[in-house]
Amino acid sequence: MEQAIQAAISGALQGSLFALMALGLSLTWGFLRVINLAHFGVILLGAYLTIEWAGPTGLGPLGVLVVTVPILFVVAAVIHLLYDRFEVSELNSLLISYGLLILMIQLVQNYWTADFQRLPGDINPYATRSVSVGSLIFPLPTVMAALFAAVLVVGIRLFLDRTYAGRALQAFGQDRQIAAAFGIDHRTLGILLAGASGATAAVAGTLFTLRGTVTPDSAMEWVGLVFAIVILGGIGNVAGTLWAGLLVGAVSGLVAVVWNPATSPLVVFSLVVLALIFRPQGLFRRKAAH
């Protein structure tokens, strides 16, 4: 029993990292109607830049965020300019961003090789530490991921609900024409939001490096799980994304322990299929629309 609880909570904490990855994707899909697979490339860049710069600059893995967040903000915003310029449809955005993703993965591989990379132990004090609650023990990096995810979710939620720009974005996502008729300029806001999703990618990339190794192919390994979270959480639903991440993580953790690890992806994706059948708008509807 205790083993099951440990597995579920550990899984949920890991799931929060994937929720962090899913956040930006969900936002740009929900509000800007692009399905941006290149987001995974941006996360990958975040991870590699952390490994590259954390030591030499003396900033440490978290300090590097000061540099990577603005850089990846710009990268993501530039990618969005491409979608915006060509007014791509949702399906075409999927194709184009797929092209961008393989391109980015290959460039990362050409520069950093296909080998496993990790943060050196001396500048990653988090990897070996853990947090214990009673008899339960959790690795520190996953706890940090959960904290960051929670902070970002709350922050984004506040931004969307409390600021004029945030509410304008919501309005834009709900009715583009009327939003424009009231003076909401989608172009500026869209680039802002795409950039913000790039910033969350930077955070996700850094947190990923705290727990272990990364290879260029890691990006493809994230895709399935992250999209499962986006769909379960409800496209564009910020808090739902976090809940879905925790749920998916807990379920995978549990299944892996009580059954076997090979079945956990099957269970997760069966969940997605069931959700698509019964709750196409996601498991966690925020407010009743219509």
């Binding site: 999927l94 399935g224 690890p261 099957l266 196409p280």
Partner: peptide, 30 residues
């Protein structure tokens, strides 16, 4: 499964199929 879903749009079908090799990878590896 996919073609019975009423809510299924092309994009969702694409994403579902994106997950498929990933599932089989885990099954084969483990």
């Amino acid at each position: 499964i996919a073609f019975r879903l009423r809510s299924l749009r092309g994009e969702i079908f694409a994403l579902l199929t994106l997950a498929l090799p990933f599932i089989l990878l885990a099954v084969a590896r483990l």
